[in-house]
Computed example of a mutant assay.
Amino acid sequence: MNESQIDLAHAVALGSIGDEDRRAVHDVLDSGDAALRADFDSEVQQTREALTVFASASATPPPATLRTRLLAAIAADQTPAAATPHHPPR
């Protein structure tokens, strides 16, 4: 695999590919080169595994008050049902 294909595999693993990159992925996977496809798939899998390990190692639990604060913010943001005009179907 060349450097741009490795970069493309990393983008796939991150889930951050656009239309142009998506076409490039199809080109790699449809190339008919079984070794290239296997290398590409392996690079995507290894990158996903590395990202999982990294995310697990750096994860921290949320503050205990987060749920209460979120629910209060949601309640404050909601418009009461009586204030919303209702138009019956015609």
Rank of each mutant, 00 (worst) to 15 (best):
V53A: 08
A59N: 05
T84I: 15
D33Q: 04
R22F: 14
S31C: 05
H10R: 13
T84K: 14
S16G: 15
P80A: 12
F54A: 10
L14H: 13
P63G: 00
A11I: 05
P88D: 05
G18Y: 03
L8I: 06
S31Q: 05
D27W: 08
L71E: 15
A57V: 04
L51P: 00
H10P: 06
A64I: 11
A72K: 11
V12D: 03
H87D: 06
R67Q: 15
R23K: 13
D27K: 13
E49L: 14
D41M: 15
L71C: 09
E3H: 09
A64Y: 11
F54T: 09
P80G: 07
S58R: 13
A82Q: 13
D7T: 10
A55Q: 12
L70H: 09
D7M: 10
R37W: 02
F40I: 08
P63M: 00
E3S: 07
A57R: 04
S56I: 07
D30H: 01
P88W: 01
A34C: 00
A34L: 06
S56F: 11
I74R: 03
A59L: 07
Q5E: 11
N2D: 15
G15E: 02
R48C: 07
V44G: 02
D41Y: 07
P88G: 06
V12P: 02
T65R: 09
P62D: 08
H86S: 15
G18Q: 00
S58G: 01
M1Q: 05
D21S: 10
R67N: 12
D39Y: 00
V12A: 01
A9Y: 04
P88N: 06
H26L: 08
D30K: 01
T65F: 01
L66H: 01
R22N: 14
T52L: 13
D21F: 02
L51E: 03
T65N: 10
G32M: 01
A64E: 15
T79S: 09
S31A: 10
G15M: 04
P61V: 14
T47L: 05
A64R: 12
L8V: 05
I17W: 06
G15Y: 05
P62F: 05
T60H: 11
A83P: 00
I74F: 14
D19K: 07
E49P: 04
A72Y: 00
A50D: 11
D41A: 15
R48H: 06
Q78I: 14
R69Q: 12
L70A: 10
D7V: 04
R23I: 12
A24D: 13
P61M: 14
S16K: 15
T84W: 00
T68G: 07
A34T: 10
P89T: 13
R22L: 13
S4D: 13
A13V: 03
T60I: 13
A75W: 08
M1N: 06
A81Q: 13
N2W: 00
A34Y: 05
A72C: 02
S56T: 14
S56C: 10
L36C: 01
T84G: 00
V25T: 09
D21A: 11
A13Y: 02
A72G: 04
R90K: 09
D39R: 01
L66F: 05
T60Q: 12
A35G: 13
A24H: 09
E3C: 00
I74Y: 10
L29W: 05
N2R: 12
A55P: 01
R67M: 14
V28C: 03
G18V: 05
T47R: 10
P80Q: 09
I17L: 11
I6M: 07
M1W: 08
D27S: 12
S56H: 12
